[in-house]
Amino acid sequence: MEQVVQQLINWLALGAITALLAVGFSLLFGVLNVIHFSHGDVALTAPFVAMGVLIALPAAGFGVAIIAAIVLVGFMGVILDWVSIRRFRSAPPMMALVATVALGIVLRELIRLLYPNGSNPHSFPRLFEGTAFTIAGATVSWLVVAMIGCSVLTMFALTLILYRSPLGMRIRAVSQDLEMARLAGIDPNGIFQATFFIASATGAVGGLFTASYVGLMRFDMGIIAGLLGFSAAVIGGLGNMTGAIVGSLVLAGLETLAQAILPDGAAYRLVVAFTLVLVVLVFRPAGLLGRVPVPKV
């Protein structure tokens, strides 16, 4: 029983951070129609940015550094779009894909080269200390509570922004029909930048929790985190926020299950996750909640 509850908690924690990354992929795809493959790398620069802020301004304190990291990574997304991704908006999808894969490499390498002793893993502090409560014999730390809570709050805030705010209305307009939105006087570039900011900042929250959850940060963490986030978004159905959350929970559930059941399950975590991706792509190419788009002829 204790084991089962513990695994359930692990599942929710893992699902929460995956979802923070997955919604970014989904949002960017929905609005820009571009697969931003380096989104995971953008998100996972956040722990380095936070520690960098602390190194530069030790007086700032950890809390300020975290907030600064979220905002700075949000702007980083906007800058990356401006510098490179926007050039591929009307190019064949293959080009944007390869370009953002390359962008991910550039980001990882920049962290490795610019951060002091960047090739090695660094420890990353727990954002919240201590045990919150025990339930059926399983202990739940404040960190896990915060992870799940923040994730739920973020999803809630995103829903509010997208469906209840003027900005959200414009974002959805651009997402549905770029030309119509342009005719209606919406500046699509502003919307793209806003989307990049929101997606990257959300990803940064996920990145900070990821590093905090495992207790360390490494320059190449973004690649796996990004792949898992992207996979979750695809499993749920790209361009669909609910889909991203569902996909994250399914993916995290299977990962947790594999670790709990398979001997040496931790080693096969990624194998199980990506096998699920393959199965979903073959049998439900548009994801669990997505619909196959009718080709425009």
Partner: peptide, 16 residues
């Protein structure tokens, strides 16, 4: 699958 989805298939196969 096509485009990005197919690319993800190849990435998944590579990682596996």
């Amino acid at each position: 699958t096509r485009d990005a989805y197919l690319a993800l298939v190849t990435i998944a196969c590579g990682v596996i």
